[in-house]
């Protein structure tokens, strides 16, 4: 059974969850272009590289895809010091050293643990193992790849290509630890059992050519007003036409704010908008205001919007908006 991604934020009944599937419902609406990109990448089992301005839902996409397809989810969050190997496995040489020392000092008859006991697979390693041993596909999120050292994408190439790795520290033994998701077959033949990579980038660094060549690329555009309303509706568990008037006006004011042509230090994005709508729903918190009226919200100057701090994150943006209105 071929599973396709429909981008509606609901799991269709034929996508029965696989063992270990990611089951947290993700109210994520994907445009039809984005669905095409996901499905093409799924079909070819090539990594999907997603770019877009911060807060437009790049990371959420991986969650949504895993949820809709009923796949397990593995996450690799990149830090500036991340190395590709850390996501495959870690060998705790230090612990082994201590254990051996303990045996030597305390109990000479005790038997040392095998080396493989000191190997901890990372999320990427787990995904490959899952595919090889249990024939289970998964969604692997590699988040903010541009944060890592410039070598990181290149180090990852071989793994993304061959979907195999070995644990060097246990390699010399008879039963070395080797994992191979492709099992010597073609990518096409093993397609539905392979991990599916969703890679996000903020374009802080240009990624190397050989890496880009292998990816399907998609740029997530910022949602328009109607799409934003739909997103708010999904997140407040209601339907688009029953959206509460405050939220409706809030989205409109948010769009007005975003359209201001000031020199943005950090333009507010969808996630900030959702926080803001949620904050507005909790009014009245301030004593001097009886309750929030949607007309007031509609007519308030941008600089006087309640809870502006959820939307604007720097003083210079704040000052510019206040000055502008």
């Amino acid at each position: 059974m071929v599973r396709t991604y429909e981008g509606k934020g609901v799991r269709s009944p034929q996508n029965t969850p696989l063992p270990g599937a990611y089951n947290q419902a993700e109210p994520y609406i994907a445009s039809s272009d984005l669905c095409d990109a996901v499905n093409l990448a799924l079909h070819l089992r090539r990594p999907l590289l997603v770019e877009g301005e911060p807060g437009c839902g790049k990371t959420q996409l991986a969650f949504a895809v895993a949820y809709e397809l009923g796949y397990p989810l593995k996450t690799c969050y990149i830090r500036s010091t991340s190395r590709a190997q850390d996501f495959l496995y870690n060998y705790d040489a230090l612990r082994r050293l201590y254990d051996l020392e303990e045996i030597r000092a305390g109990n000479p008859n005790a038997k040392a643990k095998p080396r493989r006991a000191y190997v901890h697979l990372g999320d990427l390693g787990e995904a490959i193992k899952l595919s090889e041993e249990k024939e289970l596909p998964s969604v692997v999120l590699i988040d903010e790849i541009d944060k890592a050292d410039i070598d990181f994408p290149n180090d990852l190439l071989l793994v993304l290509d061959k979907l195999q790795f070995k644990v060097d520290e246990v390699d010399d033994e008879e039963d070395g630890m080797r994992y191979d998701a492709l099992k010597g077959q073609t990518r096409e033949a093993r397609r539905d059992n392979l991990p599916f990579f969703v890679i996000t980038s903020n374009r802080e660094k240009e990624l190397p050519k050989p890496f880009l060549r292998r990816c399907i690329y998609y740029y997530i555009d910022y949602p328009n007003k109607e799409e934003l309303k739909e997103i708010v509706a999904r997140h407040t568990q209601t339907t688009r036409n029953r959206l509460n008037p405050i939220a409706e006006v809030a989205v409109e004011r948010f769009v007005d704010l975003r359209q201001k042509e000031i020199h943005w230090r950090k333009k507010p994005s969808t996630s900030e908008m959702l926080d803001w709508v949620q904050a507005l729903a909790q009014l009245p918190p301030r004593r001097e205001e009886k309750s929030l009226n949607f007309r007031e919200l509609k007519n308030a100057p941008l600089g006087k919007l309640p809870y502006l701090g959820t939307l604007l994150k720097t003083k210079s943006d704040f000052d510019a908006i206040v000055k502008d209105t």
Binding site: G7, S32, Y218
Partner: peptide, 24 residues
């Protein structure tokens, strides 16, 4: 279409020179 296991979403827009461009 079993040998076409992924599908493209139906597109509303007619094909004009940049109807399907993701850039605005």
């Amino acid at each position: 279409a079993d040998e076409m296991p992924f599908q493209l979403q139906p597109h509303l827009k007619p094909l004009s020179p940049d109807s399907s461009s993701t850039a605005s």
